[in-house]
Design a protein around this nucleic acid. Structure first.
Length: 515
RNA sequence: GCCCCCAUAGCUCAGUUGGUUAGAGCGCCUGACUUUUAAUCAGGGCGUCACAGGUUCGAGUCCUGUUGGGGGCACCA
């Protein structure tokens, strides 16, 4: 402990020592709580409803409540303390002539301590729902001070790295994380009710395939081989479709070794679902049903406010073909530029940065990202992607330059990606080969990887299938109105994993000058 | 990976053109107060100005580097 920290902890440690000297266990194993703070408040107002619809007070309800002490107001021989649990907070009213000798315990309590109190529900002169405390006990001593009670904790570094302090100081973080939990539960219920089976596929994989992304690399000692953290669940879920599991989904963490910003975290939660005998049109209907339904179930509305704009999530959502979207917003007819070189020339002519070291797919992605995606504030499906951007999607029979693929956008953010799955093993193999060739030609681009075992699986036959991927973190951002992925992740990645400044004494550091 | 910005007390923040001993509120300590609500009142203590160098008679303030954080670009979902 640093000298500075020692100063700050001294009074709390002194109180701890005094308590121990008096025979008080500062960390007792058990407290029998009868009511949460919310239940205790509800118990008081459980009487018959008056004309205003609010329940009348019930006299003398006995409760045992517990929580973290977040505020303390001592008037000498009477004190008020506010305790907080995950549901809310509640005032304790403690008087010396009721508590007797136990009243002295309050001298050794600090903000942040966990306390348990037993007493009867009452209302103070000013109408505050309170517990008139008959007995109070310390449940856990806090040896470090909590963040400031009024302004809360603002420092973003500390908020992310010591999320527990953020949760203590900023209650709205609880609400966001609770919403996230409800959203995930609602998604599970949605798929479960439609006959989908939730499955778990490997996180450690021999080939990081199924998406275009840089993998994290690791090593298995006993096998002495390189393994990767998955970048997608796609190819394993399709193997299950081959195996006859006709409707499967997985909600899992995937890992991409790429940049960190307001909407990218190196590990994020991806929902993927696959349904045999469905195509991307079916999946569009699924998505425009799923998203508003989840919003309705978790927020009570299909309208959400994001960056000050009302987004109407209720379907159906408009479909815009990628070809038309690029023609309208970028002024380029992709069909006139069938190769990377001619497209790059056209883009440079229009002042869009484009190099000859970029593949056609990547150039199109750039056009879409620059001109088209930002237009999609209200939920929109962008449909029919060029085949070279979609190595796992089935080509459109009417125009094989394009694939039966869509991405869904809202608030200018991609929230879903889906296609009619490519199930022809020969074509799939050729697409993988093409990806590997593009990788050699356009170094630095993320491309998909050959997965021979997956080809073998397809050779055993995969029925026509509609697949879907939804970034859960972004969906949570959308529904909860958060503008940073860090605010929907409990423990977002930070730049460094170095120990906190006041935790460094456990390290083998150079001795201090005075030592 | 590149560019820009930020870092002052446990927390939230001031700190003038480089000028004496770095301030406020909350929290903390002492005292008063038996219905308070960010309780109030009186008194008190608190700092490696992120870290390491440099310029200067003098640095929280200017310069360089490092670390951490934020924003933007690139990459991606």
């Amino acid at each position: 402990m640093s000298k500075r920290g020692d100063e700050l902890l001294r009074s709390r440690r002194l109180k701890l020592d005094r308590l121990v000297a008096r025979g008080v266990d500062p960390f007792p194993p058990r407290f029998n709580r009868s009511h949460t703070t919310a239940e205790a408040a509800a118990a008081l107002t459980a009487g018959p409803a008056g004309p205003d619809g609010i329940g009348t007070d019930v006299e003398g309800v006995e409760v045992s409540v517990a929580g973290r002490m977040i505020r303390m107001r001592s008037m000498g021989k009477a004190s008020f303390a506010d305790i907080e649990d995950s549901e809310g907070h509640l005032q304790l009213f403690m008087r010396q002539n009721t508590l007797g000798d136990d009243y002295a315990l309050l001298d050794d309590l600090d903000l942040g301590d966990f306390v348990g109190a037993t007493g009867t529900m009452m209302r103070t002169r000013t109408g505050e729902v309170s517990v008139e405390v008959q007995s109070v006990m310390l449940l856990a001593k806090a040896l470090r001070p909590p963040p400031e009670k009024f302004h809360g904790l603002r420092d973003v570094e500390q908020r992310y790295r010591q999320r527990y302090l953020d949760l203590i100081a900023n209650r709205d973080v609880h609400a966001t994380m609770r919403a996230r939990s409800r959203i995930v539960s609602a998604i599970r219920a949605f798929f479960d009710s439609r006959g989908y089976l939730e499955v778990d596929t490997p996180v450690l994989v021999p080939v990081p395939a199924g998406a275009m992304a840089q993998p994290f690399i690791t090593h298995h000692n006993a096998l002495d081989r390189q393994l990767y953290l998955r970048i997608a669940t796609e190819l394993y879920l399709k193997r299950l479709i081959v195996g006859g599991m006709d409707k499967v989904y997985e909600i899992g963490r995937v890992f991409r070794n790429e940049g960190i910003d307001a909407d990218h975290n190196p590990e994020f939660t991806l929902l993927e679902s696959y349904e045999a005998y469905a195509d991307y049109n079916d999946i569009m209907r699924l998505v425009e049903t799923l998203v508003p339904q989840i919003a309705q179930e978790t927020t009570g509305s299909t309208t959400v406010t994001y960056e000050g704009v009302e987004l109407h999530l209720a379907g159906p959502w408009p479909r815009v073909s990628l070809h038309e979207g690029v023609k309208e917003h970028a002024g380029i007819d992709l069909n006139d530029y069938p190769d990377a070189e001619s497209l790059a020339n056209k883009m440079r002519e229009l002042g869009v940065p484009a190099t000859y070291a970029e593949s056609r797919g990547r150039l199109i992605d750039k056009l879409v990202g620059t001109y088209v995606e930002p237009k999609f504030i209200q939920p929109t499906f962008l449909v029919d992607y060029p085949v070279e951007m979609s190595p796992l999607a089935k080509a459109m029979p009417a125009d094989p330059r394009y694939a039966e693929r869509f991405e869904a956008f809202a608030a200018g953010m991609e929230i879903a990606n889906s296609f009619t799955e490519l199930n022809d093993p020969g074509v799939q193999k050729a697409r993988f080969v093409e990806q590997e060739e593009l990788r050699k030609r356009y170094q630095g681009e993320d491309l998909d990887r050959m997965d021979e075992d997956f080809i073998t699986a397809l050779e055993h036959g995969m029925p026509p299938t509609g697949g879907l991927g939804i970034g859960i973190d972004r969906l949570v951002m959308l529904i909860t109105g958060q503008q940073s992925i860090r605010d929907v992740l409990l423990f977002p990645q930070t730049r460094s994993t170095q120990p906190l400044p006041d935790a460094d004494d456990d390290e083998d550091e150079e001795p201090e000058a005075e030592a």
